[in-house]
Measured scan of single mutants.
Amino acid sequence: KKKYVIKVYFEDTGKEVEIEAESKEEALEAAKRLAEELGLKIKKVEIYP
């Protein structure tokens, strides 16, 4: 089964997080949740198959 690796870059902090997920949708949801939890804004998202 294919996994996606999503790199999320946050504004202000210069922080980046990698998330593995089964689908792009799932990964983007996780990225949004994470940003909310951390109180950060997402600057850029890169998706690698």
Score class of each variant (00 low, 15 high):
residue 39 G to M: 04
residue 28 L to I: 06
residue 47 I to A: 05
residue 20 E to R: 07
residue 37 E to I: 11
residue 11 E to S: 05
residue 23 S to Y: 03
residue 43 K to F: 13
residue 32 K to Y: 10
residue 12 D to A: 05
residue 1 K to Y: 05
residue 32 K to P: 01
residue 3 K to L: 08
residue 31 A to C: 03
residue 42 I to L: 05
residue 5 V to Q: 08
residue 16 E to K: 11
residue 18 E to M: 10
residue 35 A to N: 01
residue 33 R to P: 00
residue 18 E to A: 05
residue 23 S to Q: 04
residue 11 E to A: 06
residue 40 L to G: 02
residue 35 A to V: 02
residue 6 I to D: 00
residue 19 I to K: 01
residue 46 E to H: 13
residue 43 K to A: 11
residue 38 L to C: 04
residue 21 A to N: 03
residue 6 I to G: 04
residue 26 E to N: 06
residue 29 E to I: 14
residue 24 K to M: 09
residue 20 E to A: 10
residue 18 E to V: 11
residue 4 Y to K: 01
residue 35 A to G: 06
residue 31 A to L: 03
residue 14 G to N: 14
residue 34 L to R: 09
residue 47 I to T: 05
residue 10 F to W: 15
residue 7 K to L: 07
residue 13 T to G: 08
residue 8 V to T: 01
residue 21 A to I: 06
residue 7 K to S: 03
residue 1 K to D: 14
residue 43 K to N: 14
residue 34 L to T: 12
residue 14 G to P: 08
residue 27 A to V: 05
residue 45 V to C: 13
residue 7 K to T: 07
residue 20 E to M: 13
residue 29 E to F: 14
residue 38 L to N: 06
residue 6 I to Y: 09
residue 26 E to M: 10
residue 18 E to Y: 05
residue 27 A to W: 03
residue 46 E to K: 06
residue 31 A to Q: 01
residue 21 A to D: 02
residue 22 E to P: 13
residue 16 E to W: 13
residue 8 V to F: 10
residue 40 L to T: 03
residue 46 E to W: 05
residue 48 Y to I: 07
residue 30 A to T: 12
residue 38 L to T: 03
residue 5 V to Y: 12
residue 10 F to H: 00
residue 12 D to Y: 13
residue 28 L to S: 06
residue 47 I to S: 03
residue 25 E to A: 05
residue 7 K to I: 06
residue 15 K to H: 09
residue 49 P to M: 12
residue 29 E to A: 14
residue 6 I to M: 07
residue 32 K to I: 13
residue 38 L to Y: 06
residue 39 G to C: 06
residue 3 K to E: 07
residue 46 E to S: 04
residue 6 I to R: 00
residue 15 K to G: 06
residue 45 V to W: 13
residue 30 A to H: 10
residue 31 A to N: 00
residue 46 E to G: 02
residue 36 E to D: 14
residue 17 V to F: 08
residue 6 I to W: 05
residue 37 E to Y: 08
residue 46 E to Q: 04
residue 13 T to I: 09
residue 32 K to T: 10
residue 24 K to T: 12
residue 34 L to P: 00
residue 36 E to T: 13
residue 30 A to L: 11
residue 11 E to V: 15
residue 1 K to H: 11
residue 34 L to E: 03
residue 27 A to K: 00
residue 12 D to T: 14
residue 19 I to S: 02
residue 40 L to R: 05
residue 33 R to K: 13
residue 6 I to H: 01
residue 14 G to S: 15
residue 12 D to K: 11
residue 37 E to N: 09
residue 37 E to G: 09
residue 35 A to I: 02
residue 7 K to W: 04
residue 5 V to F: 12
residue 5 V to S: 06
residue 1 K to N: 13
residue 23 S to R: 03
residue 32 K to D: 12
residue 22 E to A: 12
residue 34 L to D: 01
residue 22 E to D: 10
residue 6 I to Q: 00
residue 16 E to T: 12
residue 5 V to R: 11
residue 46 E to T: 10
residue 46 E to A: 04
residue 18 E to I: 14
residue 40 L to I: 03
residue 20 E to N: 11
residue 12 D to P: 10
residue 17 V to L: 07
residue 9 Y to C: 05
residue 38 L to S: 05
residue 28 L to Q: 04
residue 15 K to S: 12
residue 22 E to C: 14
residue 26 E to T: 06
residue 1 K to P: 15
residue 45 V to N: 01
residue 10 F to D: 00
residue 44 K to F: 09
residue 47 I to M: 10
residue 23 S to V: 03
residue 27 A to I: 03
residue 19 I to M: 12
residue 34 L to H: 11
residue 25 E to R: 05
residue 20 E to T: 08
residue 19 I to Q: 02
residue 8 V to Y: 03
residue 4 Y to R: 01
residue 31 A to S: 06
residue 13 T to M: 15
residue 7 K to P: 00
residue 33 R to L: 07
residue 1 K to L: 13
residue 19 I to E: 01
residue 33 R to T: 11
residue 27 A to R: 00
residue 18 E to T: 07
residue 22 E to L: 08
residue 41 K to D: 11
residue 11 E to K: 05
residue 29 E to N: 15
residue 24 K to Q: 08
residue 41 K to Q: 07
residue 13 T to C: 14
residue 16 E to D: 15
residue 41 K to P: 15
residue 9 Y to M: 10
residue 5 V to C: 02
residue 22 E to Q: 07
residue 12 D to N: 11
residue 26 E to R: 06
residue 8 V to S: 00
residue 44 K to H: 14
residue 11 E to P: 01
residue 11 E to M: 15
residue 5 V to I: 11
residue 24 K to D: 04
residue 19 I to T: 03
residue 7 K to A: 04
residue 3 K to P: 15
residue 47 I to H: 08
residue 49 P to R: 04
residue 22 E to K: 04
residue 42 I to W: 02
residue 23 S to H: 03
residue 32 K to H: 14
residue 21 A to K: 05
residue 13 T to D: 08
residue 45 V to G: 01
residue 49 P to N: 11
residue 20 E to W: 05
residue 7 K to F: 05
residue 31 A to P: 01
residue 6 I to E: 00
residue 1 K to E: 09
residue 40 L to Q: 07
residue 35 A to F: 03
residue 33 R to N: 11
residue 20 E to I: 07
residue 28 L to A: 06
residue 30 A to E: 10
residue 37 E to C: 04
residue 20 E to L: 12
residue 18 E to W: 05
residue 15 K to M: 09
residue 31 A to F: 02
residue 30 A to G: 10
residue 5 V to W: 12
residue 13 T to Q: 07
residue 23 S to F: 09
residue 10 F to K: 00
residue 34 L to W: 06
residue 38 L to P: 01
residue 12 D to W: 07
residue 22 E to I: 05
residue 10 F to T: 01
residue 43 K to H: 12
residue 3 K to T: 07
residue 27 A to Y: 03
